[in-house]
Design a protein around this nucleic acid. Structure first.
Lengths: 342, 342
DNA sequence: GCAGGTCATGTAATCGATTGCACACTGGTC
DNA sequence: GACCAGTGTGCAATCGATTACATGACCTGC
């Protein structure tokens, strides 16, 4: 196998052109298919390209055509599965069309958000999918992007962002409230949601209204943070005050686990005396589902975001388009089985 | 506020040059700092750039300088936290230097691996961090990259890859064996590792040897798959044959959870009669650590990979450099507390 | 036989930043 | 006063693909 001097440098379009005895224009058209070439030329060009080991240079192509075939993704740096599910589903949709994903993480408080977004813009991404860490960041992202297609995903969405995918709080809360009503809940206590944070307040209200509509009384709102330790702390304060028929609705699985652990240690029977539910599933339900929780539709949200982005790229006019997807209720061992089987 | 015709197009170097009354060369040098310019010029250029809202064009820069300031990351599409920890730690290290991360997922069986790697190469990434889904993929990645700096991470590493970060199987197994010996284990059974898969076989051997060295007898190797269901299946076959003093060493948390659930349901007391340990922690240990498992050092592996990559980029000569990092042992409720307190 | 059309291909400008080379100027030295 | 070193700038080529426009070949129909 005597390679014909496979020079150290990569072959360019011009090399292929001279090898095939045609112009660079023809090679470009033959390989990209942007315009028809004769079958004979096509064959010759392909052969020449293969012989030289030609590889398309995406950088040069991007410069000239002003399209990088890549989108930027900005996520807060919470190490959780749901973000990884979002990334996977987004990249999956993008890969299918040969679009690359340029990933950047920002601090959960949004400190470096604008900087990261600007960097992606400097790289001339064709679009942006942003999960803003705060409402302000959401507004900034929109402003910075300056006309570039952008889709926002998550809870912290500026009311003015035209394209956004979020959780359907109302219907998700309804799903949970329905289950709680059927398992005999008469009152709920909310643990781990901050009533002073707008996004949390919205969720508190959605849950409260969904419960009220089903005859369940919205009770205290206890906020001591939103991690495992916060759950423990809150439960230590609450455990001897809870009464049968109550359900402790927790912000997420970590809080719920803390609460559950303390309650059981104190001799409170869960779910017999008190039930516990989580509003945000953090761990996939492969491990015996100890908790009843809402599984957020991250994969669908990712797919929807990509679709929206494509839509925004196609149509010049930026129509407002917001989608809210409902969570699934995963029933675990922290709530009872519903009474009617219907 | 009468903006001076902020034309729809983004300003270019040439625009800034004419605005500042200097040449494009000077602007480039002033803004990048690649060569000194006079303080006065610097100020004028900066002012002009700010006035026009100039933004660096990374694409043009990449074409000319032949450096994209980005690295490609290739990961198998397992939706697990540990990969997300790896991504986070890698991007964190890269961000600090203004390097972008181009992310691509491949099928767990490696079907589309070569394609994805080739795409990243076409995008002219400056380096590659690959977690190969199979040993063959590892070899391909090395060959395809053709001189480009590449670091491989994970279990499926071709013996010839020069730069690789992996788990230190020996020391990790030692950590676990030490704990098992101190908790009275006399014999182990391995569940969920495939003795016919080279990577699994290595792990079986490491664990076997570490145990043997501490007077624990390596017992049966049971393989019925490596997910939750496999754990259940295996446990149904094993439960009435296990004897006190045995520890079931499972491939990962899912298998271990399956085994644990069945054993408890069958009345086997864990950890009193039988102990269970997992060789791969899948879920962060925030939730009450029901399982004793090995927490793999994903974050350190990510940081190490980036460092290796930089090293490879700096030094022309590609020295062989392989690092193996040890796991941490997280002791949970599925094993007893060690006897000596020392 | 010729206007008008289609089709494949070539020519050369272009995208926007970087950089080798050349040049001008300043200041110091013998 | 001639020479040299050092510093700051500018000119223009360059990276590699894309594409508007031009060209020429060939066909069709009257």
């Amino acid at each position: 196998m005597t390679d014909s001097a496979p020079s150290d440098e990569l072959a360019t379009l011009a090399d292929v052109a001279s090898e095939a005895g045609v112009s660079t224009a023809t090679v470009s058209r033959a390989l990209s298919g942007s315009r028809p070439v004769s079958p004979d030329t096509l064959k010759r060009v392909r052969a020449a390209a293969a012989r030289l080991g030609y590889r398309h240079n995406a950088v040069a192509s991007a410069l000239r055509s002003n399209r990088t075939q890549s989108v930027g993704i900005v996520l807060p740096r919470y190490a959780t599965v749901f973000l990884s599910a979002l990334i996977e589903s987004v990249t999956e949709s993008l890969d299918a069309q040969g679009i690359g994903a340029l990933l950047r993480y920002v601090a959960p408080d949004g400190a470096d958000h604008d900087e990261r977004v600007a960097d992606l813009l400097d790289r001339r991404v064709d679009g942006l999918i942003v999960c803003p860490p705060t409402i302000e960041a959401s507004g900034h992202a929109q402003r910075l992007s300056h006309g570039l297609p952008i889709v926002q995903v998550g809870r912290f969405l500026d009311p003015d962002t035209p394209s956004a995918v979020s959780l359907d709080e109302t219907s998700s809360a309804g799903l949970l409230a329905h289950h709680l009503a059927r398992t005999g809940t008469r009152k709920i206590v909310t643990v781990g949601l901050d009533p002073d944070a707008p996004a949390d307040a919205t969720r508190i209200r959605s849950v409260g209204e969904a419960c009220a509509a089903r005859g369940i009384a919205p009770g205290a709102v206890v906020y001591r943070g939103s991690d495992l330790l916060a759950g423990v702390t809150a439960a230590e304060e609450l455990w001897d005050a809870v009464t049968p028929g109550e359900t402790l609705v927790c912000a997420n699985d970590d809080v719920a686990t803390g609460v559950l652990t303390v309650l059981r240690a104190r001799g409170v029977r869960v779910p017999d005396d008190v039930q516990i539910a989580s509003l945000l599933q953090l761990y996939p339900d492969a491990q015996g589902t100890p908790l009843t929780s809402l599984r957020h539709p991250w994969r669908q949200m990712g797919a929807e975001a990509v679709e929206m982005l494509e839509h925004a790229q196609r149509s010049r006019v930026a129509a407002r388009r917001r989608t809210a997807l409902s969570a699934d209720l995963v029933v675990g061992a922290s709530t009872r089985t519903p009474q009617e089987e219907s």
